[in-house]
Design a protein around this nucleic acid. Structure first.
Lengths: 244, 244
DNA sequence: TTTGACAGCTTGACTATACAAGTTGTATGA
DNA sequence: TCATACAACTTGTATAGTCAAGCTGTCAAA
């Protein structure tokens, strides 16, 4: 296996995930039993089970009591786009051949529509505006606002490539969770022009706020997508917890 | 506590979730330590930890090593709409005062745009078409296709109220997971008329396929939302598993 | 006053064990 | 032949314990 994960359970999960992705464990078949996986990885059953529960959460397998862990059939194109994934990470795994153009990078006040209910109004942050293109066609405009602290500045090449790679690998930040909101809105003439929208000026707007493991918010983003190119794919499990 | 859950870990999770929702554990404060929760519920630490990990996954708490489990600040209006939740369940928890109109209920061939890549083309299913209104305004058209087996028929009042309640409580089905896909499309004149759309005829289309715990698919759905009323809220955690 | 070591708390990771419960094939008995 | 019982597998749930690692206040020494 040999992953860069420190944890035993994480590296087991990573290893099995790769074997599923590469067809070593085929959809519709069962994984080796938990006991066999214990032998295979030299670990206890609880550790194997924690690894399997990660794969269950991701939608890679379904556990069936008395039978085993069935590998689910997630076609490439239906692989979940939800979760916290950077555009560059998607670009790699989906082989989209996308390009990124940095349009702005300056300190600015966080606009009200992004700040509302998330962070103090009037607060300033490092604003980065980027245009994503696929095959020369504009697809997405990303408006990022990076909070200081914990982020003081961002080198130009990090903005052009992957902000997340810079945060995680260079700054050692522990990106943990995010809240997201998807709506459809009439956007400003500026955004409409960048995306080359028609008269309706409708775009899909994804607003998100991303947090570090210590619950510090560090990123506010509004992404404007061309509606004809937008596609959000999700895998969800029915929760046992109910409210009210 | 007293929940209808059979599991200790599930009832602990349910109990803590309700206490958070009702403000007994306030956002920004820490839960009792795992050791204290052990005493409180008379269980082992592992069981408590499994309960807490459910709450972590849901976005209700954030665990911080050395400190404790911090209750996160999920305002009512930003509570995740993702996951597998029926319209009626949302209606209850969000107090939307919605009404449902059953427009059709008959056996029909699953349309190609829904069947594509999910199920055999030309297969028939029980088709239920419903119009959801809030304050008399049409908001959503749901096109459900229920597969036989496992679903033979559906009583009229179940279609008007909650299909999920009928499936789970009456039929004893174990609804487990779903794949979803959100796009923006120009819809048919029929749907456009039902939703009272303007000339652009754009609607948000949510296509989903829902499965039982034994991996049997039982429901295909296409939901058409008025774009000006559509809002999708999600909570996501950064995954440790990477591909490629 | 400031610094540093440490005790005592917290969660994280892992192990070992036990029993319950669901599935499946096989052998036994009528 | 057929049905039943059972053995041998599977996963589910819960327990108890160990050590690592992160946080915080206290107390003692400089």
């Amino acid at each position: 296996m040999e992953r860069y994960n420190k944890n035993k359970q994480d590296s087991i999960a990573q290893d099995i995930a790769l074997k599923i992705q590469h067809g070593l464990y085929q959809a519709g078949t069962f994984l080796p039993s938990e006991h066999q996986l214990c032998d295979l990885y030299g670990s206890s059953r609880e550790t194997v089970r924690r690894a399997l529960s990660q794969l269950t959460e991701l939608g890679l397998i379904q556990k069936i009591r008395g039978k085993g862990s069935l590998v689910l059939d997630l076609q490439r194109f239906s692989f979940p786009i939800s979760g916290i994934t950077s555009f560059q990470e998607l670009n790699k795994t989906l082989e989209m051949h996308a390009t990124t153009e940095v349009l702005q990078k300056k300190t600015a006040i966080i606009p009200a529509h992004l700040a509302a209910g998330r962070v103090d109004e009037g607060r300033t942050a490092l604003h980065i505006e980027r245009l994503r293109k696929i095959d020369r066609f504009p697809i997405v405009v990303d408006e990022d606002y990076l909070l200081n602290p914990p982020i003081k500045d961002v080198p130009d090449n990090a903005a052009a490539n992957s902000l997340y790679a810079y945060f995680e690998k260079e700054l050692g930040l522990d990106i943990s969770y995010a809240t997201k909101e998807i709506t459809v809105e009439t956007v400003s003439p500026r955004i409409a022009a960048l995306l080359n929208l028609d008269n309706s000026k409708l775009a899909v707007v994804v607003r998100s706020m991303t947090y570090l493991a210590n619950t510090t918010p560090f990123q506010l983003t509004a992404s404007y997508h061309r509606p004809d190119r937008f596609k959000f794919i999700d895998f969800a499990r029915r929760r046992k917890i109910s409210f009210k």
